[in-house]
Amino acid sequence: ELSWTAEAEKMLGKVPFFVRKKVRKNTDNYAREIGEPVVTADVFRKAKEHLG
Rank of each mutant, 00 (worst) to 15 (best):
K10Q: 13
A47N: 03
Y30W: 07
E7C: 05
R24Y: 03
L2W: 04
F17E: 11
K25G: 07
H50N: 09
K46V: 05
A6S: 10
A8T: 02
A8R: 00
H50Q: 10
A47R: 04
A6I: 12
A41G: 09
K10C: 06
A8I: 00
V15F: 14
K25V: 12
W4G: 00
N29Q: 14
F17H: 10
F17A: 12
E1I: 10
A6K: 12
D42Q: 08
V15M: 13
E36R: 05
V15A: 06
V19I: 14
E9T: 09
V19E: 15
N29R: 12
T5S: 08
K46N: 08
T40A: 02
E36F: 08
F44R: 01
R32G: 04
K48S: 14
F18R: 14
P16I: 04
R45H: 07
L12T: 00
F17M: 10
V38W: 06
V23P: 00
G35W: 04
E1L: 11
E49S: 09
V38I: 13
I34E: 06
V39K: 00
F18E: 13
G13W: 11
R24F: 03
K48D: 06
V15E: 10
W4C: 01
K14C: 06
V23E: 03
A41N: 04
E1M: 11
R32V: 07
T40E: 02
K22R: 13
A6H: 10
R24H: 04
T40F: 01
E36N: 04
L12H: 01
L51H: 12
G52R: 11
A47P: 01
K22V: 13
V43Y: 01
P37Y: 13
E1P: 14
P37M: 13
V38T: 08
A31I: 02
K14S: 10
K14I: 06
R32W: 06
E36C: 07
A31T: 03
E36V: 12
K21S: 13
G35P: 02
G35L: 05
P16G: 04
V23R: 04
E49C: 07
G52V: 13
E1R: 10
L12Q: 01
V19H: 14
E7D: 08
I34A: 09
D42V: 07
K22G: 08
T40K: 02
N26E: 15
W4S: 01
V23Q: 05
L51C: 08
G13Y: 12
E1Y: 11
R45M: 12
E49F: 10
A8K: 01
D42P: 04
E49R: 13
K25D: 11
G35R: 06
G13K: 15
I34R: 10
K48Q: 15
E7T: 06
K25S: 10
N26Q: 15
G35V: 03
E9R: 09
R20Q: 07
R20C: 03
F17V: 11
K21T: 13
P37D: 10
K10D: 14
T27M: 08
E36Y: 09
E49L: 13
E49Y: 10
K22W: 15
R45S: 07
E7M: 07
K21F: 10
R24M: 05
L51T: 10
E9W: 12
A41L: 09
K14A: 09
W4T: 00
T27C: 07
K10M: 13
S3P: 15
V19T: 08
G13N: 14
V19G: 09
N29K: 13
F17P: 10
E1N: 12
K22F: 12
G13D: 14
R45Q: 11
H50P: 04
V15H: 07
F44K: 01
L12K: 01
V15C: 08
E49K: 14
V39E: 00
V19Q: 15
L51R: 14
K25N: 12
F44G: 00
S3W: 12
A41P: 07
R45W: 09
D42F: 06
E36A: 15
E9G: 04
N29M: 13
E33C: 09
Y30L: 03
A8M: 00
L12M: 04
V39Q: 00
P16K: 05
K46T: 06
A47H: 06
A6F: 10
A31F: 01
E7K: 07
L51K: 10
V39M: 02
R32T: 06
V39I: 08
M11W: 05
F18A: 13
P37F: 12
V38P: 00
G52M: 14
D28Q: 07
G13V: 09
A47Y: 14
K46Q: 12
P37V: 14
A31D: 01
A8D: 00
L51S: 09
A8P: 00
K46R: 14
E7N: 05
G13I: 11
R32S: 05
D28K: 02
E33D: 10
G52C: 11
G52N: 14
G52F: 09
T40M: 01
L12Y: 03
R45Y: 07
I34W: 10
P37N: 15
E36M: 08
A47M: 06
A6N: 09
K46I: 05
E1H: 11
E33G: 09
A8V: 02
S3I: 15
V39C: 02
E36K: 05
F44Y: 11
L51E: 08
N26H: 14
L2A: 05
K14T: 09
P16C: 07
R32L: 08
K25Q: 15
L51V: 09
V43Q: 02
F18T: 11
V15G: 02
V39Y: 00
V38Q: 08
A41S: 07
K48R: 13
E7G: 06
M11H: 05
